[in-house]
Design a protein around this nucleic acid. Structure first.
Lengths: 145, 145
DNA sequence: TCGAATATTTTCATGTTCGAAATAATTTTG
DNA sequence: CAAAATTATTTCGAACATGAAAATATTCGA
């Protein structure tokens, strides 16, 4: 039993690394090769909710506002993201995705969906629920820390 | 059903990020604050099998040998790792962990074990097997790419 | 022995990250 | 209402990470 858990841990570590690696390689071979994984995840964070500010997105990604400005500069220059000055508070700029930004986001989402599809393809509803419960337990464990 | 999978995807994305973030923060607050997550994973990779070469560890971590040399330089300077020149081939240096290296590795392993414990605590053997099958399916999906 | 192959390190150029300071706009307070 | 404090963002500087290619040292095979 102890061995089974150690085995599960090893498999999780491997799949963590592999997911990152495949995502990075896929991006660099795609028609969006000018994006790093960090850029991609920033686009993901912006898509979560249009009209977010730079600070909000920085906070979501656990980055400093200064770092986020740099990333946004690049994403704007490469036409994935638009800066929209707030009309009520001129300190604030809202962020949004361009059409190109939406396109790459959807492509990335599709990759994720196929991964989840692979994960659950052999599971019945009960087994999926059991896994969701497990994930919730890990999240609780992380939140306590 | 489609919605359930989208929800699962969102939870996985979040837990991926949170695991990395907690690991990083834990390290920076520990008595091993001079280690980055990358350093920690290098120690992990070295511990997998003592007497590995620089190239082998670089390959395991999908890094160039040049980058690995830099990381090893730091880990040796901070007394986590030892370079052991091969006696039969003087081009080769084998890598090993010092006592300090073992200590931090065990601490990190303990964190992983508690995470896996949280993941499986509410699961029976059948449900764990179902999840293992799912992980294997994702791994197959990644390997095809 | 000489040339090819191998293992590691060095060098160089690029990119990422944070923190602190600067800039700009808004809100609060006396 | 004006000064002070707060808020949002950007700029700048330094430290670090990374990969590619060159340099160094060694081994191996014809």
């Amino acid at each position: 039993m102890m061995n089974e858990l150690a085995d599960l841990n090893a498999k999780l570590v491997k799949i963590f690394n592999d997911v990152r690696w495949v995502e990075e390689r896929d991006l660099s071979k795609s028609s969006f090769a000018d994006l790093s994984l960090r850029d991609m995840h920033t686009i993901e964070a912006i898509s979560l909710d249009e009209n977010q500010t730079v600070s909000q997105v920085a906070h979501t990604m656990c980055l400093s506002p200064g770092s986020m400005t740099k990333i946004i500069d690049k994403l704007v220059a490469h036409l994935y993201v638009t800066r929209m000055p707030s009309k009520t508070d001129r300190r604030i700029t809202h962020l949004g995705l361009t059409e190109k930004g939406h396109a790459i986001f959807l492509e990335h989402l599709n990759f994720h969906q196929r991964m989840v599809q692979a994960l659950t393809s052999d599971m019945n509803d009960h087994e999926i629920d059991a896994m969701l419960q497990g994930i919730a337990n890990v999240q609780k464990f992380l939140n306590r820390k």
